[in-house]
């Protein structure tokens, strides 16, 4: 490991993507669960629990994409065409569910349409992101400085499985967020959903974790060779611990702990992913150093990042603090 600009930027981009996954994860999850929440008023409550923060959450996706363009332009230029169809689907899904936050309140007759747009758009976005994850782990064909694969390389049994896993994971984040932010009917429903989703997610994590090492001998060596196994063992062990906490927290009807335990699961899985992929940014061949822009570009943006990201985190935290506690169903300006 070398502590150079490319490495620092890899950590920062990884942080941005993780922030995106967990933050937009819960509000996409609320969208995916929308059809399972009955009653207009309950749906109002569910939507209002994320309405003040979804836009900020999604900005991390723009930072991930924009950051990749800025600091790893070669990776951006290869990954985007390789994942052309799922990215297009994701963007359109995000359009549909994003406008639903406003449009749903503007019509009584057409409200069901925007309920579907919110749920369907969230589901499409989550599925697409899961496919992108799977396709990236499997590896992308590269020739020179451009993508060399076909237009459906992203569609494999593995990527379909990661897509399902992401949908389940986001749904669980959404359900545990609703446990944290709501009361009564919606919260009861969220506990039911969270119980079922927890089992599904643990099964999905197990399958992806067992399948991934066999995609690529490097991955296998990272996890199962001696003495590497000693260094990486804490990740699966902590994952098991977090899973145990999650099951107990839901069983004991805790308010905040289910969400926190789900967050821990996401973070641990993400670290596991990093262990498999590092130092490649476009697996299996392009490393962060191959893809990095010149130091002058990395340094210029790093200065601003070091100053601005802590400020962003501070006012984002402030915004969450302003809307702390249980959601006020009638708190909208609509």
């Amino acid at each position: 490991m070398v502590l150079d600009l490319a490495f620092i930027w890899a950590l920062l981009i990884a942080f941005a993507v993780l922030a995106y996954v967990v933050l937009d994860g819960f509000d996409l999850g609320v969208g995916i669960l929308f059809p399972f929440i009955k009653g207009t008023r309950n749906r109002d409550t569910a939507m209002n629990s994320v309405a003040p923060v979804w836009d900020g959450n999604e900005t991390w996706l723009v930072l991930g994409g924009g950051g990749l363009f800025a600091v790893f332009p070669l990776a951006y230029a290869i990954i985007m065409p390789a994942l052309y169809a799922p990215i297009t689907a994701m963007l359109l899904g995000l359009v549909l569910r994003g406008v639903a936050f406003e449009f749903r309140w503007k019509t009584e007759r057409g409200k069901f349409l925007w309920d579907w747009a919110f749920a369907g758009g969230s589901l499409i976005a989550a599925l697409s992101q899961g496919i992108m994850l799977g396709a990236l782990i499997q590896g992308i064909k590269v020739d020179g400085r451009s993508y060399a694969g076909g237009w459906f390389d992203w569609l494999t049994p593995f990527s379909l499985m990661t897509a399902v896993a992401i949908v389940i994971g986001y749904s669980l984040l959404g359900a545990t967020w609703l446990i944290l932010k709501t009361e009564d009917d919606v919260q009861r429903r969220a506990y039911e959903l969270a119980s079922a989703l927890t089992l599904a997610l643990l099964a999905a994590i197990g399958m992806v974790s067992l399948w991934t090492p066999f995609l690529n001998p490097t991955f296998l060596a990272r996890w199962f060779s001696w003495p590497a196994i000693l260094y990486v063992a804490p990740v699966p062990l902590l994952t098991l611990a977090a899973a145990g906490r999650l099951v107990l927290a839901i069983h004991d009807r805790r308010q905040a702990e289910p969400f926190l335990a789900t967050l821990a699961l996401f973070v641990l899985c993400y670290i596991g992913l990093g262990i498999s992929l590092y130092p490649n940014i476009v697996p299996p061949s392009i490393s962060i150093w191959d893809a990095a822009a010149p130091d002058k570009s990395l340094a210029f943006l790093l200065v601003g990042t070091v100053v601005l990201v802590p400020i962003i985190l501070a006012y984002t935290a402030y915004s969450y603090w302003v809307f702390r506690g249980k959601v006020d169903t009638d708190g909208g300006y609509h």
């Binding site: 800025a70 600091v71 332009p73 951006y76 822009a293």
Partner: peptide
């Protein structure tokens, strides 16, 4: 994107 990223990306 590959060609202008180092200048326009930041």
């Amino acid at each position: 994107s590959d060609k202008t990223g180092p200048v326009l990306g930041p």
